[in-house]
């Protein structure tokens, strides 16, 4: 019911619409159109050959596989952290809460060199793991670690508010009806938070797919084994193969847009269910 018709009550419609459209066109749409322009220099066959190049295919597999592993790990870890932060009081809780945003605040390149140093064969943690034959740096495990590091806040910060909104009576109702802790959690708490958990995990997955700075230092970047797709774009650029880079980027962009849209639709649906059709 906000000012719908010809005359708008609140000021600033034309101004903010003008500025927003100008900005969106210059900053977002114009650069994206240049991608289309670059791709049009390729024939379909050339395009297909680039995006199905075995080295590129291998990089898709590495990226999607590790991002999947990282986001699933984060679903568990993030749920645990959100639960602990909402449900329990303990000394240091505020610090723990503040630390959750560290991966957002810390530049990814810094995270990358730090993790690479810590987990390399003679790094503080890598040294401890080496005797057991566990190698993290320069393997796909390292990529998962870096991706998980940068995307953990997505899960925590999406689940946390939903968990906070859950009234205490829900717990009490379940317990007075004789449910065990585990049963009550599965049947009462989970149904309430799982849409948020899926959203958070989806966002973490999207972020992991695109992560670059944190990953390249620890990945080792061995062709066919530990090269991620973002790196492939950078490699093509260094070879001045702009068309090749654009072709790979178009795949990445399409997947990201699809994911973004899916997450938005998912979120809108779940919002509708909780708030009865509005929004």
């Amino acid at each position: 019911m906000i000012a719908l018709s010809r005359k708008r009550v609140l000021p600033g419609f034309s101004l903010s619409l003008g500025i927003t459209l100008l900005y969106v066109s210059l900053i977002l749409l114009l650069p994206m159109s240049s991608l289309v322009g670059q791709l049009s220099t390729l024939s379909w066959e050339q395009y297909w050959n680039i995006i199905t190049d075995p080295r590129h295919i291998a990089s898709y597999k590495v990226t999607v596989g590790t991002a999947l592993a990282a986001s699933l790990a984060n679903a568990v870890f993030g749920l645990l952290l959100a639960w602990v932060l909402v449900r329990y009081e303990f000394p240091g809780k505020r610090i723990l809460d503040a630390l959750m945003d560290l991966p957002f605040a810390l530049p990814t390149a810094v995270a990358g060199i730090t993790l690479a140093t810590l987990y390399s064969q003679n790094g503080a943690i890598g040294e401890l793991l080496a005797p057991y034959g566990i190698e993290v740096a320069y393997t796909w495990v390292g990529i998962v670690l870096a991706m998980a590091f940068t995307s953990i806040p997505f899960v925590v910060r999406t689940v946390q508010p939903v968990l906070e909104d859950l009234p205490g009576q829900i717990d009490e109702a379940a317990l007075t009806l004789g449910a065990s802790n585990g049963y009550a959690f599965r049947r009462v708490i989970m149904p309430h938070i799982w849409p948020a958990l899926v959203t958070g995990t989806g966002l973490a997955f999207a972020r992991s797919l695109g992560e670059y700075g944190a990953v390249i230092f620890i990945a080792g970047n061995m062709p066919y084994k530990t090269e991620i797709t973002s790196l492939m774009i950078a490699v093509r650029l260094e070879e001045y193969d702009y068309a090749g880079a654009a072709a790979i980027a178009s795949v990445v962009l399409a997947v990201s847009l699809f994911l973004l849209l899916a997450i938005n639709i998912w979120q809108a649906r779940f919002y509708k269910r909780l708030h009865g059709g509005r929004g």
């Binding site: 927003t20 969106v24 977002l28 749409l29 114009l30 650069p31 994206m32 159109s33 240049s34 991608l35 322009g37 670059q38 999207a206 797919l209 695109g210 992560e211 670059y212 700075g213 797709t229 973002s230 790196l231 774009i233 950078a234 650029l237 702009y242 880079a245 654009a246 980027a249 990445v252 962009l253 990201s256 847009l257 994911l259 973004l260 849209l261 938005n264």
Partner: peptide
Amino acid sequence: LQTLIDIPFAVSPVVAGLLYLLLYG
């Protein structure tokens, strides 16, 4: 408009750099 504005969140920063390189390079 609201979805458009989320694009920079979802897309790899390398792709962002590439887009600008293709336009202004």
